[in-house]
Design a protein around this nucleic acid. Structure first.
Lengths: 158, 158
DNA sequence: CAAATTATTTGCAGACATGCAACTATTGCA
DNA sequence: TGCAATAGTTGCATGTCTGCAAATAATTTG
């Protein structure tokens, strides 16, 4: 690698770090309001349900990397609070499906909406030309990066 | 806004959201290992200390938006675990400064290092030309996004 | 100098998550 | 049919965070 290329390399790393911080700010702000009414682990459950629809207790517990016993009790609290409901599993009568209530669904979509709105506001500050360049750059990056796993994203609550 | 511009706008939002997921995956993976040895609130404290150096108990408590009483006890645990030390405040003998131990400092820098390494690996897959475009685009984005506040970043632990 | 203020800690109480072990209900296999 | 495996819940114990009120020590103000 030439020296110029090396410098560009370091430069791009730092620019990426900065962008990641800006992005985290957006994410954090969008989630903040939800975290006033549910805990982070609970919000993660809501996000999983929002993405996958009604899911077995055990499956969710696995995805959350918690013991079933822990998870059952967390579900108890979430059910009392009205974020989810338990419905009998189809076929296997041992299984229990967890389903988002309207209220739970709303909470997740509020967060998503807020996030999208803020990103649009940011993008609105750019010229059409810059916006095109940005889309290309983000796409390049996303392509080069491995698709993040569910667990990875859940670490941060989304 | 013309219809075409509107479409481009929505398009860039979705591209940004997609890339943000990749970027967040990187951040999440970098933090994950730390969260095996400290809690999220504790890691936030370490990050604050890492950024600002020795800081008063009260100042930290404010930044963490927790009561001093809660915070004192959290510090107790962190001190026992060896992440921080308390040193007498200079001048005011009521004050107590919190300072990172080498161990605590190391934990934070491990996370940072891991994140930088992964970003570099991703960027290495790009051509020099693309990398330059990316630096410019990410910088644009970070600039257009308001600088995330300390509280915003702390919401998610960094 | 005495009184009010400030910085931190401690007492007390509650909510949530975690882990291990035991228990119930239901399935599936021999 | 009978017994092992599976899905989920419950008992019990612990660790962490959170909040309010009161205590302690040191500083500042009148």
């Amino acid at each position: 690698m030439t020296e110029a290329a090396l410098v560009a390399h370091l430069d791009s790393t730092s620019a990426t770090l900065t962008a990641s911080r800006a992005l985290l700010g957006v994410v954090a702000r969008s989630v903040a309001s939800a975290l006033e009414v549910v805990t982070l682990p609970q919000f993660r459950v809501l996000v999983l349900l929002s993405a996958s629809g009604p899911t077995r207790v055990g499956t969710l517990a696995d995805q959350m990397t918690t013991l079933a016993s822990t998870f059952t009790r967390s579900l108890d609290r979430m059910e009392v609070a009205g974020w989810i409901t338990r419905i009998p599993g189809p076929g296997d009568r041992r299984a229990v499906l967890v389903e988002l209530t309207d209220k739970g669904s709303q909470l997740v979509s509020d967060v998503t909406t807020r996030r999208e709105q803020e990103i649009q506001k940011i993008l609105a500050a750019l010229s059409d030309e810059d916006r095109v360049a940005l889309v290309r750059a983000f796409t390049l990056f996303a392509t080069a990066a491995a698709e993040p796993s569910v667990e990875d994203l859940l670490t941060l609550g989304l």
